[in-house]
């Protein structure tokens, strides 16, 4: 468990490197919600090939790592189907309405000191913190 922060830092560097390749190579901001959402709502029709390739990499490389090493990380995800659907809907609607998530507003926005990126990250982190504070610490339901 002591090594968690090292894996966090190393994984973070890989995430940033991916963002750098997408920016310097294709001239695009690496935002997971924007890349997927643009495919789903049709707004990214003209760039469907690079969006699909990106998503294939995001899903495919962890799959490949799992097959090659024979081990995958523990996800500890909830088994409450209602909660999963509610949270998925909120994440899907929210990230598209705000035009960004942890990767687009967080990683890519903050690193260029974008006011919108910094503000969005502050708001969604605060909303997440309050959700845990109320539902876990006060009510004890999640």
């Amino acid at each position: 468990m002591e090594a968690d922060w090292i894996w966090g830092l190393g994984g973070g560097l890989l995430i940033g490197l991916g963002g750098a390749v997408y920016l310097l190579g294709n001239g695009r901001i690496m935002g997971a919600s924007g890349i997927l959402g643009g495919l789903l709502d049709g707004s990214g029709r003209n760039t469907a090939a690079e969006r699909s390739a990106f998503i294939a990499g995001v899903i495919g490389v962890p799959l490949l790592i799992g097959l090659l090493t024979g081990s995958t990380p523990d996800t500890q995800v909830t088994g409450n189907a209602g909660l999963l659907v509610l949270a998925g809907l909120l994440v899907g609607v929210g990230t598209r309405v705000a035009n960004g998530c942890t990767s687009g507003h967080g990683v890519c926005g903050i690193s260029r000191l974008s006011l919108r990126g910094i503000a969005a990250t502050a708001v969604f982190m605060l909303a997440g913190i309050l959700t845990l504070a109320v539902l876990r610490q006060i009510l004890g339901v999640i």
Partner: peptide, 28 residues
């Protein structure tokens, strides 16, 4: 930006998944 980020943050807190990790972990 404000409304969307609040909705996203609540959903993120409820389960602990955001769009990138939701895709990356699909296989496991």
């Amino acid at each position: 930006l404000a409304v969307g980020s609040v909705l996203f943050g609540i959903g993120w807190g409820l389960v602990g998944l955001c769009p990138g990790p939701a895709m990356a972990s699909l296989s496991y």
